[in-house]
Simulated assay, not measured.
Amino acid sequence: MQADIFAKKKRNTLAYLCLLGAVTMLAMVITEYNAVKGIASIPKAVQWGMANFYPTAESLEKLPVILEKMQETLLVSIAATTAAAVFALLFAIFGSNTTRINRFFGAVTRGIATVFRNIDVAAWALILLFSFGQSSLTGYFALFFGSFGFLTRAFTETIDEVSGGSVEALKATGAGYFSIIFQSVIPSSIPQIISWILFMIETNIRSATLIGLLTGSGIGFTFNLYYKSLAYDTASLVVIVIIAAILLIEFASNYVRKVIL
């Protein structure tokens, strides 16, 4: 019996790999992609990057402007995430199987969160461009909506996993709904909630760079401006600043996670 199950899994895996290979080959034919030519161009690309993509003394003079734009991106990312976290927590409480008011209301809140979560941040930015144009506000709302959907799902699962036993115990003692929320749900879930918020801030800082290209704001727009003007030395400095900021934020968030978890 086990031999038959193993053989079946092996056949399924082989069939999946063959299907994946066929789809890959079909995509290469349709897009006229030459894999050999692509691999052969890597050394030239590396050589060009080493020759052009590095900061110079002249580009370092623009560092204050770059840091100012990086600061703008960081603040927008943090503000969008924290604001979205507040609304996400409310929706998570109403949508959680542990704390929902009723099945219908829980299904509605979960459905709203699912819609927001399944629309990519870049798609939100394109949608909002029609209303707000190219501005930091467009980037803020794009990050806000994307964060809201993701955090609602994360917070809902956290509440279901962490607070189930304590909620049942308080219900057995006759505690009211709001007493359960503020005395059990939030205190027991807050470490994981903070961890998810920190993760979302890291993700949004990365996404904000791409969003800036679309909304004409922040560090993403600054990179695009220098790159299109062929100022590769300054564009490389922008990339270095972005990488340094991401690593710094990740280090800080990892430290906070170690403290609270």
Score class of each variant (00 low, 15 high):
residue 2 Q to K: 05
residue 3 A to C: 01
residue 3 A to V: 06
residue 4 D to P: 01
residue 6 F to Q: 03
residue 9 K to L: 08
residue 11 R to P: 00
residue 13 T to E: 03
residue 16 Y to A: 09
residue 20 L to T: 05
residue 21 G to I: 12
residue 25 M to Q: 07
residue 26 L to W: 04
residue 32 E to S: 13
residue 33 Y to E: 14
residue 36 V to H: 05
residue 38 G to E: 15
residue 39 I to A: 12
residue 40 A to Q: 11
residue 41 S to K: 13
residue 43 P to K: 06
residue 44 K to S: 13
residue 46 V to H: 09
residue 49 G to Y: 03
residue 53 F to D: 08
residue 53 F to P: 04
residue 55 P to H: 09
residue 55 P to Q: 10
residue 58 E to A: 07
residue 71 Q to I: 07
residue 72 E to H: 04
residue 79 A to S: 15
residue 83 A to L: 09
residue 83 A to Q: 13
residue 87 F to H: 10
residue 87 F to N: 15
residue 88 A to L: 07
residue 89 L to G: 15
residue 98 T to K: 02
residue 98 T to H: 08
residue 103 R to S: 11
residue 109 T to V: 12
residue 111 G to A: 09
residue 111 G to R: 06
residue 112 I to D: 15
residue 118 N to T: 14
residue 118 N to E: 12
residue 119 I to R: 03
residue 121 V to D: 01
residue 124 W to M: 01
residue 127 I to F: 13
residue 132 F to D: 07
residue 136 S to I: 13
residue 137 L to H: 05
residue 138 T to A: 04
residue 139 G to A: 09
residue 139 G to M: 02
residue 139 G to L: 07
residue 140 Y to I: 03
residue 144 F to V: 08
residue 147 S to K: 01
residue 152 T to M: 05
residue 152 T to A: 11
residue 155 F to R: 03
residue 155 F to Q: 10
residue 157 E to S: 13
residue 165 G to T: 04
residue 168 E to Y: 01
residue 173 T to C: 02
residue 173 T to G: 00
residue 175 A to G: 10
residue 179 S to H: 14
residue 180 I to V: 06
residue 184 S to A: 13
residue 185 V to A: 12
residue 186 I to V: 13
residue 194 I to Y: 13
residue 194 I to G: 12
residue 196 W to I: 01
residue 198 L to N: 11
residue 198 L to W: 11
residue 205 I to H: 06
residue 206 R to C: 10
residue 206 R to E: 05
residue 207 S to P: 06
residue 208 A to R: 07
residue 210 L to K: 12
residue 215 T to Y: 03
residue 220 G to I: 10
residue 222 T to C: 03
residue 232 Y to A: 00
residue 233 D to S: 07
residue 233 D to Q: 12
residue 235 A to N: 02
residue 235 A to T: 04
residue 238 V to Q: 10
residue 241 V to W: 05
residue 245 A to G: 14
residue 247 L to P: 08
residue 252 A to F: 11
residue 255 Y to E: 11
